[in-house]
């Protein structure tokens, strides 16, 4: 992709909303779709990964090793490389290799690997004695996973979810470089390729504010989900 070098002509301030608002909408759409996919697939995968590990409810060390390796490979590739590497797969799934649809595929893959680890880590922080309590209380594996593992890990999972959303916003900006649209695309095409500092600054401000808001919301939710933090506000 060789950009046509245009004479410098910054977008006038008045035109910024018309440029940025639709782009912001695209970013939100992308992150929203990806988060839905990640939650639906990553959560059970994380629970599975935790419980097939030694000491889990369904110990299967071999399966755990295989799963763990696959996820580690997914996590080790820089997102830009992953995105380029799986273009044939993306085209197979979506029929295109540009635009929102095409960005969602690599973002989801990377996001699932990321979130699986987050869920696994959150569940691992639940003391084994709590699981013993639930087993001794006559819980089935499903009941134990719901009440004891997930029930206790909710604040940690929400905290992880916050990190995940922020990472996905970042990924969406990287996906912008392959023409996925969104704030990242605007930042690259206007801010970087046309040296339009106004747009560049505006996109930075938007991203910073968005990330800060997500973090604040996440922190509030964690606080709400943790009785000790919710009730000891004094």
């Amino acid at each position: 992709m060789s950009a046509v070098v245009l004479p410098r002509a910054d977008v006038p301030l008045g035109d910024l909303p018309a440029l940025l608002l639709p782009a912001y909408g695209e970013t939100v759409t992308m992150v929203g779709i990806v988060m839905a996919v990640v939650l639906v697939i990553g959560t059970p995968l994380g629970v599975l990964l935790h419980n097939v590990a030694p000491g889990g409810l369904y110990e299967r060390p071999a399966l755990h090793t295989v799963l763990s390796w696959i996820i580690s490979i997914g996590r080790s590739l820089p997102f830009l490389i992953l995105m380029a590497a799986i273009v044939p797969f993306t085209r197979f799934v979506t029929g295109t290799n540009i635009g929102i649809a095409a960005a969602v595929v690599p973002m989801s893959l990377a996001g699932i690997a990321f979130f699986t680890r987050i869920v696994e880590n959150a569940l691992r922080s639940v003391p084994p004695s709590i699981i013993q309590v639930a087993r001794a209380a006559g819980g089935s594996n499903l009941q134990i996973m719901r009440s004891a593992q997930f029930g206790e890990a909710v604040p940690a999972v929400i905290g992880g979810l916050t990190i995940q959303v922020i990472a996905m916003i970042e990924y969406s900006a990287i996906a912008g470089t392959i023409g996925a649209g969104g704030i990242g695309y605007v930042a690259v095409t206007y801010g970087y390729q046309r040296f339009d500092n106004t747009v560049m600054l505006a996109t930075i401000v938007i991203l910073v504010v968005t990330v800060a808001l997500v973090q604040v919301a996440g922190d509030r939710l964690v606080r709400f989900a943790t009785p000790q933090k919710r009730l000891q506000r004094a």
């Binding site: 003391p127 004695s129 709590i130 013993q132 309590v133 087993r135 001794a136 209380a137 006559g138 009440s147 004891a148 029930g151 206790e152 909710v154 604040p155 989900a225 943790t226 009785p227 000790q228």
Partner: peptide, 17 residues
Amino acid sequence: RRRIGTVFQSSSLLSRR
């Protein structure tokens, strides 16, 4: 298991219940 009640070490309550 339901016919045997177990009291564990003191810290074994579910913190969010």
